[in-house]
Structures are given as structure tokens and as C-alpha cells.
Design a protein around this nucleic acid. Structure first.
Length: 862
RNA sequence: GGGCGCUUAGCUCAGUUGGUUAGAGCUCCUCGCUUACACCGAGGAGGUCGGGGGUUCGAGUCCCUCAGCGCCCA
């Protein structure tokens, strides 16, 4: 990697340099030259590896992607220039619900694991099936094939956009989350968890989405404020000594009631503990119990426990050893048969009134019946209250009992939980305060990670179950495949020792019907990208990775689950650093949303301002800070790029300085001292992942260089003070230019590589990050401030006189202290030329520096 | 209810161990075609640093407190 190279060829420089269209040409050159190719022979200590977030390909790329991927790219480029072999892969997330829906709608098919695989299957449609088309059922392997076909086109578009943005990704390491390799990694890791006891299956109450008909994990929940109403219901005490009044928002669950509960310290209900009451309508006898989770000040202070109305019911049910009376089915309807314990004739008749109804309809019926029976007191009182939803769902979650797979995450084990908190403490967070989101989440876990989903598309849970003589599955000893046959699909593949015709037969087998949550695969992105399962040499060179960049809203999901998998599989953190990016906001400070219809596409902005200008806007945002979308910032970026083009052209338009020419003039050495300081500041900032500060320091230096330094030495560079003085200026200009181009390279890869190639060999992106040592001797930068002040005052006098900046100053009187005048003497000749000053007078005086300029009378005529 | 962050010029934001007169860009106004750049340059206007209190010789910066905004969690 050459630092500088005097192989300049000024004929490369166009007369009118332009930024138009540089992106596609350079992207091609980078591809051809392998500029970003990962050197897989590099030892681990020389590797910098990045666990790239794989974007969901069923959506579209928006400014949020441009924003955060640019941040990562500046880091990747900096690390590459410091000599690291940068492992920077890209992945496409084509696993999960959004892709499943797109494939269904596009091809007119539906995934059904019970259907046999057809090698030559062709879908009935490719795009726009008619509205009355009934989706045809196809096997999971066929469905995955169609997914790969459909997403392939989207992925090309994504790749083109990312290349246009100038991401320095090594595209040879591209992965997708549904491809064979990812499914293999996912299943292999799951089987490892299972063998070590970190994964287990259990029949338990589970949060359930009745529309998606799948279980949902704690991390996918969100609270939404919904209107509800308190209904006051009275329950007769079994001993006939009176009533107990409860408040409930869900009287529909009265048939599922298994107990009443109040706080143990509540004197109102202490006498009732241990007694029983009878539910209205259904006549079921239930105990009155004490539990500290009961809220004294909520409603009447006593609540009914139902199986299951909410998560607190589950805790009560578990801790108080209560029976189960489930009445809500997986389809969101009331189950047809009454629950155990509801066996009186009147109770059964009352239950038949609601059996088969949707929950809302049933609620209405129950309220009517309670009114008629007199058990309801007064009118319902409307309230707003938080209700748990699946983050992608439209109806409140219910809780049903089902068999699911879990991976331990510390939610039920304090020691393990502390181990995960500790992992988070050892991770370097950027910005640092994001670590609180992690510990906050981990410390608040109240159950293990539910990874099974009752969907058809995704990575199958890779186990089978033996069937007993009655054809019932034996769940506690699943049959596992050997690792060398992965990935498998238990819905079509046959377990070892069985034949295909034994499926569903007594003493035969069945496949696990479920797929794994997409996070169960995404949480293995380091293992997938690093080819853990089939290239151990590569994996050892890149793992644990150096950087996980991601958005802060998925700390609880993607980040945490990756830590969990790495902890179990490798007993280590998956990465050393986590960089959390902020959101893009509308100019009105709301989160940008597609629905508002005011979203500009990245491509339009690349066209309008150039990719480097868009990157400039992104890189100007502090790490982790939500940032307003701003075309103004892009304009500024474009100005910077244009300026770099012109400044380079100007510096290179001078004859090449002699080989032995070195900066000797005080001003030149002082300027180099500022360059040195900028290098140090930018380097420190990048080491702290603060790309924005690195840019700000460099940019500020660059504009000073153009506006003041170049103006000062321009005349001298034109040889006005003799060859030695010119040689000093010319060599200093080139040293500074080389450093500045490289300092800007992570931010403006297209512009910097364009100008770099005008006078250097190879790409700026494989050049060495600038070092202070390469500048040679540097001077005292403090002389620049007084010199700048004098220049500024001369300029002001001309502006005040409304005359041209090239107007001649016949005499300038500089009044300043001795120190300033000493600096002035060092810049006297250059100042004279830059300000067109014919004659200087200096006056020593304490106090502020002042310059009194006498302007030549404007020439008349001519 | 708990946690975290933010509040500095009309707008978007810097301000890193407390240290002269608080900075930049955009916008606005004035001027200038000057042989790198008019996709430019020179200059100007614009701020009680959210409110209050405290520590200190000195606070935008540290501490306390209040208010508003935002995010995460319960």
C-alpha cells in the first residue's frame, strides 16, 4: 500500500471535472479489481469482521437502510485502510412471515407439510393470480424453492442499490437465511442445544395469535392501549353467608374461572381465604385464595383467576396449583365442549349459549345472561387499558395451552440470567448507554425463549417422534437426525431405522410439524456468514466478530438471541462491539413511514445529489442518534465533493515539485501541523466508532485548507518567491492533499477514489490510512491564528468598501502585540500576495489585533 | 411505575478531563466573475445554552430539582 506515489499523470484530469455518473463506473472497477475482497489467509488478529444485518427482502430498501449501512461502511473502510482484512459479508433475510405471504399471493400456492414433494412442480401462476383462485397446497421443499425464485429478483435490486451506495461489501460472501446452508446451521445449532439440554419441549400455556394461529414469543409482544370496560359481578359464597363482588374486564372468561384471589394483607378478604364461592351462570365452586400479585387498589381488590386471561393468571395458576379450565380455542372461538368441572345441567346449558362463538360475541352473550341473572351489578364502566398484541397482529393475544419448543434464556433460571447480563457487560456498546436496554430486558425476562411456530414456511424443527401402539406421539424422546444429513425436513424425510410407510402408523413415527422462529435462524448470523458448519478455517479467522451493527429496537430480539446462541455454542460473546444506529425522522420529527406517502426513494436521491452526498448526510449523524431527513445536508455533501474535485485539480495543476523538495516555510509547516492534528483526531474518533466526529474534524480542516491556506500560498506556488519557496508550498500542498483525500475516503468513496486515481496508483480504498509520520517535520500551528485574523481583516475592509477582493491595498497598518507581529512576519510575504497589500506598517501595542487598510483608488475607465 | 436519552441561533446540529468574547452549516442580508471552483468566494445579521437552585476564582459543561419531548421496559 503506497502512501504517496509520484507517478502522477496530469493528463488524467479533466478540464471540467464532474461527479455525474461516477458511481456505476467505479462500482464496476472495484468489482473488477477486487478492492473489497476479503483476504482469507489473514490471521485472526489482522481480521476485522462485521456481522451485517440481513435486510428483509420482501420489503424495499428505504432511507433508514441507506443511513445505517453507511455508518457501518465508514467503519469498514477505515479498518481496511489501517491494514485490516475486512470481512464484510451481506445477507438477505428471506425467511419469515412477510416472504411467506408474498410467495402465497404471487404464485397462488399455500405451504402444507403434509403434501409430498414434487421435483418438477410448476406453480399455477407467476404473479397476479385471479381473485377467485383457491391456493393449491404444496410441500414445504417446493414452497422454499418458490421463495428462492421470487426473492432472487428482489435481491438483485437490493444488491444494485447497495453497490450504488458504495458499500464495501465482499459480495462473494453473500448469504440468504432460507438457503440450505442457513437451514443447516440453524438445525445443527438447535440439535446442539437439544443434546446439551439447552432446548426442551413442553406443554404449557402460551401466548397465541388467533389470526396467525401461532405461538408468539415474549420478545414479539407489544402493549397497545385499547378500550375496555369493568363489569362488576357478584359471586355467592358457598356457605350462603353472602356475596363477593369482583371487577373484571373479561366476564366472558367466567366459565374458565378456577379461583378468586386477593392480596394476603388485605383485611377485607382475609376472612374469606380458604372458603369457596360459586360462579354465576355456571355454578362452579372455586376457592378464594391469597397471592401477593393481587392488587389491593384495583377494582374491588379481589379478582377472578381464569385459565387463561392474561400472564398473571398463568403465574397464579402455576404457583397456586390450580386446575385448568380452558375455554378459548386456537381459532379464537369458544371451545364446543365445556371445561372440566363445569358439570351441572344449568351450567352446561349456560355454556352452550356461547360455545363456538367468537370471543367478542360470547362476551356480549355472557353480559346479557349475567344481567338477567342479577349477578351483574350496575353498568359496565369504560376504561382504557394496555392489551398484549403480537407486534404484527391485529387482534389481542389469547393464551392457550400447547406443546412448544423453548431455548433457555435465563427467564426461568437466575444464574443463567446473570450470566447473560454479564455477557452484556463485557460487550462494548456504541453509544454506551444502549447497554441499559439490554440489561433492562434480560433482567425482566419471565420465561424461556419460545422458538417453535405453528407456521409452514421456515426452518423446520429437525426432529421426529416415535408413535406408541395407539399412534400417539412420544414427545420426551425425539428422534434426532445425524448432523451430516442436515438440513432435513421431517415432514418429507424419514428418520433413521424407519421406512416412509411407517409415517403416522402405530409404532411408526411422525415429524415435528412446526418451524422455528426466524430469530432462531437470524441469531446465528455470525455462524452462517462465517460458514461455521463447513469451513472451520474461515470461521476461526472471523469469530468472535469485531462488530455487530444494528438498530436499537431489536436489541431484545436479534442482539440478545445472538448472545444466547453464542454463549451456549462457543462459550463467548459473538462480537466485541455493538454499534446501534438511530432512526430516520421526517422533518417534522415523526418516524418516517411509508404510509405518509412522502418517502423519497434512495435511488432518486443518488441521482439528484450523488451517492457521496447522501452518504455525507448519513455520516453526519452522531452514532445512535435519531436524525431528521435533510436534503439540505445532502446539498452540503455535494458541495464538499465538488470542492474536493476542484481543489485536487488545482493542486495537481502545478508542476510536480522536485524529488527532494520539502516543506520549509513556517506557514507550510504550520499547516502540516494542523493536518497532523486532524489525522490524530479522526483516528481517535474512528477507534471509538464515532465516524461523525471523524468526518466533522476532517471536513473542517479541509475547508480551512481551501479557503485560507491555499489562498495564502497560491502566489508562492506560482513561483513568485523563488523556486525554494515554491517547492515548499508545492510539496506541502501535495502532502496535505494526499492525507485529506484518504481521510475523506470512508465517507465519499466515489469522489475520493476518482481524484486519487488522477495522481496515484491503485485505489484510495486500499491505500494506507494517513499517519502523522509521513508528513515529515511539522511546525507550530499557533502562528496560523494571528495570520488568519490579519487576512480576515483585510478581506473585511474590501467587503466593507464594496470592492473586489483583488483590489490593491496601498498600505496596511497592523497594530498588535509582539507575539502576533512575530507570527505576522512569518506570513508577511504570503499575506501580502493573498491580500494584494503593497506596503505594510507594523505597530507594537498591547490589546486586540487591528489592521487598517488603505485601498487604492478604484481605476476609472478601462 | 422503572430505565435511558434529549432540550444550545429561525432550522439542523457541534461543543471530549469546567477555562478568554458559546461555534458550524443551512436560511436571510450586503458585496465580489478573483486565471481551481459562480455547483464559487468575501463579509454581516442572528443565542438570557429549557426553568430554578447549588459547587467553584470561573459552569453550556459537574451536582440537585422542576418542566417538556422521545425511546425502551413493566
Amino acid at each position: 500500500m503506497a502512501v504517496t506515489n509520484s507517478d502522477s499523470n496530469p493528463t488524467n484530469i479533466p478540464d471540467k471535472p464532474s461527479l455525474d455518473g461516477i458511481e456505476s463506473a467505479l462500482a464496476q472497477i472495484w468489482q473488477d479489481e477486487g478492492t473489497y475482497t476479503f483476504d482469507r489467509t489473514a490471521p485472526r488478529e489482522r481480521v476485522y469482521s462485521i456481522d451485517t444485518p440481513p435486510p428483509t427482502v420482501s420489503g424495499s430498501l428505504h432511507m433508514g437502510h441507506v443511513f445505517s449501512y453507511t455508518h457501518t461502511d465508514t467503519i469498514a473502510r477505515y479498518q481496511r485502510m489501517t491494514g485490516k482484512a475486512v470481512f464484510y459479508p451481506m445477507g438477505w433475510d428471506d425467511n419469515g412471515l412477510p416472504t411467506e405471504r408474498r410467495v402465497q399471493n404471487y404464485f397462488g400456492v399455500r405451504c402444507d407439510p403434509h403434501v409430498a414433494y414434487e421435483p418438477d412442480f410448476q406453480p399455477p401462476f407467476r404473479g397476479n393470480p385471479p381473485k377467485d383462485h383457491q391456493p393449491i397446497s404444496i410441500s414445504r421443499p417446493n414452497f422454499i424453492k418458490l421463495c428462492e425464485e421470487l426473492t432472487h429478483e428482489d435481491e438483485k435490486v437490493f444488491e444494485d442499490l447497495f453497490r450504488r451506495l458504495g458499500l464495501s461489501v465482499d459480495w462473494d460472501y453473500l448469504y440468504t437465511t432460507i438457503e440450505d446452508r442457513s437451514r443447516r446451521v440453524s438445525q445443527r445449532a438447535f440439535l446442539g442445544n437439544l443434546e446439551r439440554g439447552e432446548a426442551y419441549t413442553q406443554e404449557a400455556p402460551t401466548l397465541w395469535d388467533v389470526d396467525f394461529k401461532t405461538a408468539v414469543a415474549q420478545a414479539e409482544l407489544e402493549d397497545r392501549e385499547r378500550p375496555g370496560a369493568y363489569h362488576q359481578v357478584s359471586l355467592a359464597r358457598s356457605d350462603g353467608s353472602g356475596d363477593v363482588v369482583i371487577d373484571t374486564t373479561r366476564p366472558v372468561l367466567l366459565a374458565a374461572c378456577v379461583a378468586l384471589v386477593a392480596h394476603p394483607d388485605d383485611p377485607r378478604y382475609q376472612p374469606l381465604f380458604g372458603t369457596t364461592v360459586r360462579t354465576p351462570l355456571y355454578g362452579v365452586e372455586v376457592p378464594v385464595l391469597a397471592h401477593p400479585l393481587a392488587q389491593i387498589d384495583k377494582g374491588t381488590g379481589i379478582a377472578m383467576i381464569c385459565t387463561f386471561g392474561d400472564l398473571t393468571d398463568v403465574i397464579w395458576w402455576r404457583e397456586l396449583n390450580l386446575p385448568t379450565r380452558a375455554i378459548i380455542g386456537r381459532d379464537g372461538r369458544i371451545i364446543n365442549t365445556p371445561p372440566h368441572g363445569l358439570d351441572s345441567a344449568a351450567g352446561i346449558a349456560a355454556y352452550e349459549q356461547i360455545a363456538g362463538l367468537f370471543i367478542n360475541q360470547a362476551q356480549t352473550k355472557v353480559v346479557e345472561a349475567l344481567r338477567e341473572s342479577g349477578a351483574m351489578l350496575g353498568e359496565p364502566r369504560a376504561i382504557m387499558h394496555p392489551v398484549k398484541f403480537f407486534e404484527k397482529g391485529d387482534r389481542p393475544l389469547e393464551i392457550v395451552t400447547s406443546r412448544q419448543w423453548y431455548i433457555r434464556n435465563g427467564g426461568r433460571d437466575a444464574d443463567l440470567r446473570h450470566a447473560f447480563v454479564d455477557r452484556g457487560n463485557h460487550l462494548a456498546w456504541h453509544p454506551d448507554h444502549m447497554r441499559h436496554r439490554y440489561s433492562n430486558w434480560v433482567e425482566g425476562l419471565n420465561g424461556d425463549w419460545l422458538i417453535s411456530r405453528q407456521r409452514y414456511f421456515g426452518v423446520p424443527v429437525p426432529v421426529w417422534y416415535r408413535l406408541d401402539e395407539n399412534g400417539e406421539a412420544i414427545h420426551d424422546s425425539p428422534i434426532m437426525p445425524s448432523h451430516d444429513v442436515l438440513p432435513i425436513d421431517p415432514s418429507t424425510d424419514v428418520p433413521p431405522g424407519y421406512s416412509a410407510d411407517q409415517r403416522h402408523q402405530p409404532h411408526g413415527f411422525i415429524g415435528d410439524p412446526d418451524v422455528m422462529d426466524t430469530w432462531a435462524t437470524s441469531s446465528l448470523s455470525p455462524q452462517i456468514a462465517g460458514k461455521w458448519e463447513d469451513d472451520a478455517d474461515l470461521f476461526a479467522r472471523i469469530f468472535p466478530m469485531d462488530l455487530r451493527p444494528q438498530a436499537h429496537d431489536i436489541i431484545r430480539t436479534w442482539l440478545f438471541s445472538t448472545v444466547v446462541r453464542s454463549h451456549f455454542e462457543h462459550d463467548s460473546l459473538p462480537w466485541k462491539n455493538a454499534a446501534l444506529s438511530g432512526w430516520i425522522l421526517d422533518p417534522d420529527r415523526k418516524k418516517m413511514s411509508k404510509s405518509k406517502g412522502n418517502v423519497v426513494t434512495p435511488l432518486d436521491l443518488f441521482e439528484k445529489f450523488g451517492s457521496d452526498a447522501v452518504r455525507y448526510w448519513a455520516a453526519s449523524a452522531r452514532p445512535g442518534i435519531d436524525t431528521a431527513f435533510s436534503e439540505d445536508q445532502m446539498k452540503v455533501g455535494k458541495k464538499l465533493a465538488t470542492k474536493l474535485l476542484n481543489a485536487t485539480k488545482f493542486v495537481l495543476s502545478f508542476p510536480e515539485p522536485a524529488i527532494d523538495a520539502r516543506p520549509t516555510t513556517a506557514i507550510d509547516l504550520a499547516m502540516l501541523a494542523r493536518v497532523a492534528q486532524t489525522i490524530n483526531e479522526a483516528t481517535t474518533a474512528f477507534e471509538q466508532y464515532d465516524y461523525a466526529r471523524a468526518l466533522e474534524r476532517t471536513e473542517s480542516m479541509f475547508w480551512w485548507f481551501c479557503d485560507d491556506y491555499v489562498e495564502l500560498v497560491k502566489g508562492r506556488a506560482y513561483d513568485s518567491q523563488g523556486p525554494e519557496a515554491a517547492g515548499s508550498a508545492l510539496s506541502a500542498l501535495r502532502l496535505a492533499l494526499s492525507a485529506l483525500q484518504r481521510l475523506l475516503a470512508p465517507f465519499m468513496p466515489f469522489t475520493t477514489d476518482t481524484v486519487w486515481r488522477w495522481w496515484q496508483n491503485g485505489s484510495v480504498h486500499t491505500a494506507a490510512w494517513p499517519a502523522v509520520s509521513e508528513l515529515g517535520s511539522i511546525g507550530d500551528s499557533t502562528i496560523l491564528e494571528p495570520i488568519g485574523e490579519i487576512l480576515s481583516q483585510i478581506r473585511r475592509s474590501k467587503t466593507d468598501a464594496k470592492t473586489s477582493q483583488k483590489a490593491v491595498v496601498t498600505q496596511a497598518v497592523v497594530t498588535a502585540n509582539a507575539e502576533v507581529l512575530a507570527a505576522f512576519e512569518l506570513g508577511r510575504l504570503d499575506l501580502g500576495e493573498a491580500g494584494s497589500v503593497a506596503h505594510w506598517v507594523t505597530v507594537v501595542a498591547a490589546g486586540e489585533t487591528s489592521v487598517r487598510s488603505t485601498l487604492a483608488a478604484p481605476e476609472t475607465g478601462n
